[in-house]
């Protein structure tokens, strides 16, 4: 069986063909860099995503601060991660890199701020 995947490692988005032998990856083609090869091998077995969203900010120049998972988390954990952040409020100021929530959805990955929100 072959699977056609679009690499998401960078904005170029290579079309990569993965030939599967049962559950084993037999051959990868179409990628322009080693990251593409690693991505599709993972994508066909244990897909991961970086999640970007916002959390509410109290007392800031704007009402939301953008955040992300510090690393990738399993794809099936995305909605659980979003849920964990839904009712969270943080106090301004917020700085890029601030840890907003530790170990989100038991993934071992922290949520960190990606924007600077001054008091306002």
């Amino acid at each position: 069986m072959t699977r056609e995947l679009t690499c998401i490692c960078c904005p170029i988005g290579c079309s990569i063909t993965v030939e599967m032998n049962g559950n084993e990856v037999a051959y990868v083609s179409g990628n322009n860099c080693p990251r593409g090869d690693a991505y599709v091998r993972k994508e066909v077995t244990a897909p991961q995503r970086t999640v970007t969203t916002t959390v509410a900010v109290d007392g800031g120049e704007s009402a939301a601060a953008s955040v992300k998972t510090q690393g990738e988390i399993p794809k099936e954990k995305i909605m659980e991660c979003i849920k964990a952040l839904r009712d969270l409020h943080v106090e301004a100021p917020v700085h890029i890199g601030d840890v907003i929530l530790k170990n989100v959805a038991d993934t071992g990955v922290d949520i960190v701020a990606t924007s600077n929100i001054a008091k306002g």
Binding site: T50, T52, S66, I96, S115
Partner: peptide
């Protein structure tokens, strides 16, 4: 643009828009 995927060419890492 709070999603990630910015900066791979410029900084060799994946950043969000504000970063």
């Amino acid at each position: 643009c709070i999603h990630n995927g910015f900066g791979l060419h410029t900084f060799k890492e994946e950043l969000t828009g504000p970063e």
